[in-house]
């Protein structure tokens, strides 16, 4: 978490290998990042599905790009479309689906090739609150037991606490790590009820104190610059 423009998305791009660092190196699982990180999957804030491909073809694409045999690819794509609850929509095009359904397709598209690291850049921020909560629950369900590392950028403190084991708060640019919090809420978590847990509210107010200073700081800078 951190104020707008502090470099959260840039950090994810660096880990994915989409951007190269101007100085220093990025290391993922002991290997220096040079080019695209094979073991990473990326879920973008904006719609990133290919509008000219059906749900099935969108989910098949990463497998085709990675040279998975076509019968195996078809089986795996069908399985993941089912897991995100979109069986029956295989032939639909993205514009025919709701925002939440498109996010589900994106999730299937990312998870289908089984990346060990999931980079998520405010993936649910464009959704309405109810859909967002559903998607958070969905993500927890799909992630639970998979052993994957998820790096999740968000503006939403509640989302951060509800999903994470550890929350890192960054300072207004240039980005530094301002604070780290361990979230010790038990798993598996229930998105609906975890917010009512007293530990949740306690963590929330503590983190908000730290974050507020940074938000005010970046707000003041933006006003001074504008």
């Amino acid at each position: 978490m951190g104020p707008s423009g502090c470099g959260k998305s840039t950090t994810l791009s660096l880990i994915a290998g989409l951007d190269a660092p101007t100085a220093g190196t990025v290391t993922v699982r002991g290997n220096q990042v040079d080019g695209i990180t094979d073991s990473a999957g990326f879920l973008f804030q904006r719609d990133a599905l290919l509008p000219w491909k059906s749900v099935r073809d969108n989910v098949l694409l990463p497998l085709q790009l990675r040279g998975v045999r076509s019968d195996e690819a078809r089986t795996r794509a069908a399985e993941w479309i089912g897991r995100v609850g979109l069986r029956g929509f295989e032939a639909s095009y993205p514009h025919q689906l709701s925002g939440g359904m498109r996010k589900r397709v994106s999730l299937a598209q990312t998870l289908v090739y089984d990346p060990q690291i999931l980079l998520m850049d405010e993936p649910f921020s464009a959704l309405d609150v109810q859909t967002r909560n559903l998607m958070e629950a969905e993500l927890l369900g799909l992630w639970q037991g998979s052993g994957k590392t998820v790096i999740f950028v968000t503006h939403d403190l509640e989302e951060a606490i509800a999903l994470a084991d550890e929350v890192v708060v960054m300072t207004a640019g240039p980005a530094r790590v301002k604070a780290r919090y361990d979230v010790t809420l038990p798993r598996p978590r229930d998105i609906e009820h975890v917010r009512l847990d007293p530990r949740f509210t306690e963590l929330y107010s503590k983190m908000w104190n730290d974050l507020r200073d940074e938000v005010l700081e970046s707000y003041a800078r933006a006003n001074a610059a504008g």
Binding site: S13, A16, L18, D38, F44, L50, P62, L65
Partner: peptide, 13 residues
């Protein structure tokens, strides 16, 4: 849309 290009690049395009 650059997001589309970034998305397929991460997938290994």
């Amino acid at each position: 849309d650059p997001t589309l290009v970034a998305n397929v690049r991460v997938m290994g395009a």
